[in-house]
Simulated assay, not measured.
Amino acid sequence: MRRTLSIAAICGFCLLWGIGAKAQTAFQQHTPLPPDSPYGVDLNLVLVRNELGIRQLPTLLTGLSRAGIGYVRIGLEWNTVEPHQGVWNFATTDRIVEVAARYHMRVLAELGGTPRWASTATGGSSDPWDYPPRNWNDWSNYAAQLAHRYRGMVMAWKVLNEPVLLDRRVGGAWSASTYAKALGLAYRAIHREDPRAIVMSGCVWWDDPATMPNSKYYRALVIDPTYPLYKNIDVMNLHYNDIPPIAQAKWLADLHRVMRRDAGRELPIWIDEVAYPADPSEQNDAGYKDGPLSQAKYLTDTLRVNFADPAVEKVFWTFPFDGPSRTHGPVEYTWGLYAVIKQNGVKHGFLQPRPSLEAYADFIHAHPKEDMP
């Protein structure tokens, strides 16, 4: 789950790109919207700040762009654009959209990050951004403001990330009915402002037995009486980090069956998270246990398996660079297309491309957009 941008990260990002503290009265993107692309990455500016330092962002984006990656999933978070009720500041999000376009990438914008003033978290909570809002009109207004501002420029929107896992982390605050409401209200607000936009969930289906909590959460969303899942999404998305490509093929087949059963139709599919480590000590999948070259093979096999399914429109590699200092989980430290090389006593590391980045570039070169199913 993406953490919200801190004030320090926001200020650093703004200073880097020469943005003033005052929001612009109207957003004007000076770089044309890049062409659509099937190939993406998931970028977290907090991790850029912590692992690399914001000033290395151009180096990172240049390398990803040269590889041919044309989509970036990134948060346009509520507590960044409305830090105080009714006080809007789009300086950071404007620059995110502008800089992505400059590096030939479209944006899959993730909604979330509830401001403290709007959050249902208790006053002393250290993570108010992880909780639902007190007033749903405020949430709808946030989604509408962004959709209106970036109409025709941000074409795809994601509502939170993995709400069932977020629900467990914050003690049941994101029940299925609460998330269904957040998704439904965002869907309606975004489509009022931009009917062409694509809206997806935070990923709510896994290939689990029906008795698993994830599956129960999904079923509750499907049958929600007010905001049923399939009336409030335009595409279905999947996450399968560290899932072998052969199992990914099974998940896809099962998802087609699930959509026919629960929606009576099949939606396009976006894989907006998939990755695998480069360190052999973290590699668990048979056939992919030989270090960085196995990570590259996993990436190539993943792209082949998923794009063999005509319904799959996009694949996003989750980690463009390593997170050696992160505390996201017991693994995911060497999952990047770039290694982050750190020296003793130095806070920030430097980027070193891995074979997986070359493998991604080779696949894109061999399978340009016009050749995709």
Rank of each mutant, 00 (worst) to 15 (best):
M259S: 12
W270G: 00
L255Q: 07
R260N: 06
W270R: 01
A278M: 01
V258P: 06
W251K: 09
L252W: 04
E273N: 07
R260L: 13
M259K: 04
L267G: 10
L255V: 10
V258S: 11
A275N: 06
E266V: 13
E273H: 10
A263E: 04
W251S: 15
K250Y: 12
A278Y: 00
V274Y: 00
H256E: 11
Y276C: 08
P268L: 13
P268N: 12
P280A: 03
V258K: 11
L267S: 12
K250L: 14
L252F: 06
W251T: 15
E273L: 10
L255C: 11
H256K: 05
R265T: 14
D254P: 00
K250Q: 14
I271T: 06
I271R: 01
R257C: 05
R257V: 12
L255M: 15
R257T: 15
D272M: 05
P277M: 05
E273K: 09
D262E: 04
V274Q: 01
M259E: 15
P277G: 12
A278Q: 02
W270F: 13
V274N: 02
R257W: 03
D254I: 04
L255H: 06
R265G: 02
V258G: 10
P268H: 11
W270S: 03
L255P: 09
V258F: 04
R260W: 02
L267D: 12
I269C: 09
K250C: 08
R260C: 04
D279T: 02
R257P: 00
R257G: 12
W270K: 00
A263R: 03
I269F: 08
R257E: 10
A253G: 15
A263N: 09
R261N: 12
V274F: 00
E273Y: 06
I269D: 11
W251Y: 12
A263G: 09
S281T: 09
W270N: 04
V258Y: 06
L252H: 07
L267Y: 14
A278W: 01
E266Y: 01
H256N: 03
L255A: 13
R265D: 08
R265S: 12
L252T: 09
L255G: 12
P268C: 13
M259Y: 06
H256A: 05
M259W: 04
H256G: 04
W251Q: 14
R257A: 15
A278V: 02
R260P: 00
D272I: 10
Y276T: 08
A253H: 11
A253W: 01
K250T: 15
A275K: 00
R257K: 10
Y276M: 08
A263M: 05
S281A: 15
W251M: 15
R261W: 04
W270M: 04
G264M: 05
E266G: 02
I271S: 05
D272H: 03
G264C: 11
V274D: 01
I269M: 10
A275W: 02
A278N: 03
K250D: 14
S281F: 02
D254Y: 05
D254H: 15
A253P: 02
R257H: 13
H256F: 00
L267K: 05
P280N: 04
H256Y: 03
P268W: 11
D262Y: 01
